[in-house]
Design a protein around this nucleic acid. Structure first.
Lengths: 250, 250
DNA sequence: CTAATTCGCGTACACCATACTCTAAGTGGG
DNA sequence: CCCACTTAGAGTATGGTGTACGCGAATTAG
């Protein structure tokens, strides 16, 4: 059986690269490049670009230039761009050493904040396809730790996994919204307030048309919250819901 | 002031296209194309492609070919690809006519399911940048309706907006995960089960290494749930949390 | 020294968005 | 009726992308 396919990434190959040994052969010209250097460089370039541009701006050429090598040299170590993106995912994951003895809520909250931080530090992260995720050493280590900290709460494994999954996707969603908005600001040089001010005439017309009576009547501060506030609000709600689920007699 | 920028989309221009009048001039060669036809064609092509490929596969050439016109003809109606994506967002939104008299929870649940359905029908939707969203006629109509249905609950507008935002981003996140996984299946022709089976050796090795003791000890059915189940679980949790927030004396 | 092996990468191709410019196809005024 | 005017459609060219292929350079085993 194979995991190969037409144009996208090969998950099997990515796995081999993630877990494969890095011992170099005895014969032949010694390498100046290495997989780790390439992945690290890709992350650096992506970090710079992602503040204003999307992931599509991360080109093999740009990575090679950053390393001072020819573009095609990268392909000796990586089958293609998609697999490189996979490797970048695992590369930036940091798993805390310390463990503590908190309850499930504190553990999940810390995890959410750490993933949020990761997305803020590497604004390309939540845009990479993470299907069939957590296969790398670091990701697996993080998941192992998470379960180790959560299991004492006495919740069954399947429920734990669903809590982790739902939370992950939630954080992912808010982070992407936030990053998209930040990018729009930086790229256009137009702040959020300025933008809405600029669109005021159009929206004013829409409101005056009478087609959106409820919108027109909304309180002034309806949209007056930061993404951090939204993030915390949703996270607290999610956890309150988890608590209700756990306490519920089943 | 301008909302223009270097390479991406021009939000002001998108707005004009969304709200602009479609009256055609009296003089000159009559058009065979129209903005609506182009947007509709773009949606059709995207719907086909997005089942297996990402948004980047939606090219101006493909849209033009689908319409049987030259590529550059599109640019008479649309400033560029980014603006076309903006227009597609509003184009596929459907706002229910009927209103009903449900409580906030039923209204939010229906909204979540409708957005979920939208993402399943148009698997490219949650991948489009929706920063500064809901500016189109349909989006605005939907938001207006949502507030109209929710306001009787007596929750203040700002809290309502945060609930809507958090829920939207949550659904967005889960839908993206689901679509990514579905895509991986279709593109590789390898089902999820087959994939994990194929990677079993690698993961077996990892487990046997002793580096992931907790993972190795997980119950068999830990990952045994569908995305629909995950979606419902997280949504219920989120709403239970909202309920706790609403009841909380402040 | 030679052969084997491995690495770096130049060249080439297919695809992409899109700026510019020219031609086609209509209409209103004389 | 005809022609100037106006608008629509699209061909060509430019500069970007990922990457297949194959060649020359660098090293070591024999």
């Amino acid at each position: 059986m194979t995991t190969e396919h037409g144009d996208g990434r090969d998950l099997g190959l990515s796995l081999k690269l993630l877990w494969g040994d890095r011992t170099r052969p005895a014969r032949g010209r010694p390498p100046t490049l290495s997989l780790d250097r390439i992945v690290a460089a890709a992350v650096e370039v992506a970090d710079e670009l992602a503040e204003t541009e999307g992931l599509e701006a991360l080109s093999m050429r740009a990575i090679a230039t950053h390393l001072g090598v020819g573009t095609m040299s990268l392909y000796r170590y990586v089958p293609g761009r998609s697999e490189l993106l996979d490797l970048m995912l695992d590369h930036v994951i940091e798993v805390p050493e310390q463990d503590g003895e908190d309850g499930w809520r504190e553990v999940l909250t810390a995890e959410a904040h750490q993933y949020w931080r990761l997305c803020m530090d590497h604004p390309w992260y939540p845009f990479v396809d993470q299907s069939r995720p957590l296969l790398g050493p670091n990701g697996l280590r993080g998941l192992d730790r998470l379960f180790r900290l959560l299991r004492p709460a006495g919740i069954d494994d399947r429920a734990l996994m669903m809590m982790i999954g739902a939370q992950h996707d939630y954080v992912d969603g808010v982070a992407r919204s936030y990053i998209n908005e930040r990018r729009a600001e930086k790229r256009t040089g137009v702040s959020n307030e300025e933008f809405w001010q600029a669109q005021a005439p159009t929206l004013e017309d829409a409101m005056n048309s009478g087609a959106f009576p409820t919108m027109a009547a909304l309180s002034e501060d309806t949209f007056d919250f930061s993404f951090e506030q939204l993030f915390e609000f949703g996270l607290t709600s999610l956890h309150d819901g988890f608590a209700a689920f756990i306490d519920k007699p089943r």
